[in-house]
Nucleic acid binder design. Structure first.
Lengths: 362, 362
DNA sequence: TTTCAAAATAAAAACGTTTTTATTTTCCTT
DNA sequence: AAGGAAAATAAAAACGTTTTTATTTTGAAA
């Protein structure tokens, strides 16, 4: 099997090379490089100088074996299962980018572990913790009763989740206040006169989908109204799901006058569907989207969005994981963000009720 | 520093545990597990059985130190530099997904190395090869004279590039036939009567941007025409760039009647710009897009696209890297794909030349 | 039956670091 | 000046595997 050694013909300097060069022992050199106080300042300076001069870099494999640490920060990432399954998980690029920035300058590398289903995600998480394939783990797609969180808390294995479960556990996490955002979007539409509001949501087993429904309902109840739960659709975060859901909602006898969309992908599908049945946003129907990559800035017609830059979440995930792997209390590593509303439409009925509304006949 | 050992209270079984359990020596056990022919079948079976029974998993760190291998497959991924820099590199999720699928079942983990600029990408590649941070490398964003390729070929360090440079080197790569695709798109528009064709392209230092221009020009020349090179714009692959370029092109005295777009992100921006200046695709202007995540299926109005599922490219990248790390000749690890055209518009002038064309006054 | 060679297994070394234990040096007190 | 304790450095062990070298066992031939 090919060995890709550098072309200089000699291996990189090791701690033995440094020992031969300086006259100090391997143990002293190791302690000096680690900043141990049992080494004098003069000795430390001499060793650091020699290390710089020789271009010494500690070998990660030697360190890993002795310390038992992997120096890997693992991230679970969904494997999209079929070509053409467009835009599934595209926000992961920015999550990984944020995490990568947080890890920059640390000893840690970013290791991506793909999974195909939620059960597979649990199995991968179990294997990472059990076999010590990484020193810490980041994952998303949190369920209300996510067993990964229970398992990792019990194993005392460092992790940070993007999202929160609904179990009374203390663990590091970063999240968006989905209940608040859903409430704000829904309240805006109710204040604009809407009563038949559709919610294009994530799959209801996902914790934040439940949070979205809670916020949706709270807005109605605060207005003394019954929530239009018959107009709630839950599915995957694809443009196709957005489109199919929209077409289904507008086939009904009393279709929505407004839609709240879970993300930018479903929104694209929603807009595509509305266009195909001749409904104009801002005139025939109002659309509010949640967007974490700000791509809805380019949607035509423009839509009001609740925008949360996901790369910031990614950076915070990485920062928290480093702290958690360094032994910090997870109770101090929890943060929930509120997205910023970008109003691009008035989102109100604007005298529309008197006009005849086209519906899709079945 | 917290040690996340499993809660069973005992460490995972090591080869020493297996030795104590079976009565065989560590060396015999290692050879048996590796499939060495110097061990008898009976001995091997007994050892494999005991390994299964005890749930033995070889420790990657012990293996790594002794063999000198990292069991890491590195991928260079751009770090998006600012929040709001939307949709930059979103296709990486599907590339990583494809690579992850290819690596599944192998001993290799996917390690993501972020970079901020091309020079940073070169520095990271140099460090990965020089310090043996990984056993192989995958990267994209190939330049015509990409120094990463030259350096890694000289170092004989296993890698696969997504894209080709223009140097006479032999190395593993996966690519799309950009010259062919650009030619096909442009030829289609020329056949439809277009003469003023805009090319919303990638930055011209990128190898495939040059390939696109080559194909663009070849289509004109084959039709006995001069290419409309004044309508070629090169920049980053963002919706913003697509929009800004389009607005600039339509400010000109003789604006384009058709646009060829480098990817789905710039196309979104292009459509947004056209909508904002009142131009209708299929009527006032024709748009052909290159798309590797098939999201343009949801664009409204629909546009003709050249579609190449990028996850397939990702899988092939992973497959080739495993083969390359196993010592396979890079000359046998090269593949170029041709995207599939999905016609959603006739893309011809259709009697439009007689109509007055709105232009943007400066 | 004995001897020798091949096969099979075991012992030891190695990878490169960190940590533990041992030894040497230095400084202060009597 | 000598002795003892603290500081500083060195030697050895350890991590868990693979590989090299050594030893034992087995089988075949004389």
């Amino acid at each position: 099997m090919a060995e890709g050694r550098s072309t200089s013909g000699r291996s990189s300097p090791t701690i033995k090379t440094l020992a031969a060069h300086t006259g100090y022992s391997i143990a002293t050199i190791s302690k000096a490089l680690r900043g141990s106080p049992v080494v004098t300042d003069a000795t430390r300076e001499a060793i650091l100088s020699a290390a710089r001069e020789l271009g010494y870099q500690a070998n990660a494999r030697g360190m890993a074996l002795r310390t038992g640490k992997t120096y890997q920060a693992a991230v679970l990432m969904p494997i999209t299962s079929a070509a053409g399954y467009e835009w599934d998980g595209v926000e992961y690029t920015q999550i990984l980018s944020g995490i990568s920035q947080a890890l920059d300058g640390s000893d840690y590398q970013l290791a991506v572990h793909g999974y195909r289903s939620f059960d597979d995600a649990c199995a991968v998480a179990r294997r990472i913790a059990g076999q010590r394939l990484a020193d810490g783990l980041i994952f998303s797609g949190v369920l209300a009763d996510d067993e990964r969180i229970a398992m990792l808390v019990e194993a005392d294995f460092p992790f940070v989740s993007l999202g929160r479960c609904r179990q009374p556990l203390v663990y590091a996490h970063v999240d968006v206040d989905n209940e608040w955002a859903s409430h704000a979007a829904t309240a805006r539409l109710i204040a604009g006169g809407h009563r038949r509001i559709g919610l294009i949501n994530a799959a209801p087993r996902l914790s934040y989908a439940l949070d979205r429904i809670d916020g949706f309902c709270r807005a109605f109840r605060e207005a003394g109204l019954e929530p239009s739960l018959d107009l709630v659709k839950g599915g995957d975060l694809t443009a196709r799901f957005g489109r199919d859901s929209t077409l289904a909602l507008f086939k009904g006898s009393v279709p929505p006058t407004a839609l709240v969309c879970v993300n930018e992908a479903t929104t694209l599908g929603v807009l595509s569907a509305l266009g195909s049945i001749g409904l104009r946003v801002g005139e025939d129907v109002d659309v509010i989207a949640y967007d974490d990559i700000n791509v809805s800035a380019y949607f035509n017609p423009p839509v009001t969005t609740f925008y949360q830059p996901i790369e910031l979440l990614g950076r915070r995930l990485g920062e928290f994981l480093l702290l958690r792997m360094a032994g910090e209390d997870p109770a101090g590593l929890r943060e929930v963000f509120r997205p910023e509303m970008i109003g691009r439409q008035p989102d109100d009925l604007g005298g529309r009720l008197s006009r005849r509304r086209p519906t899709l006949e079945s």
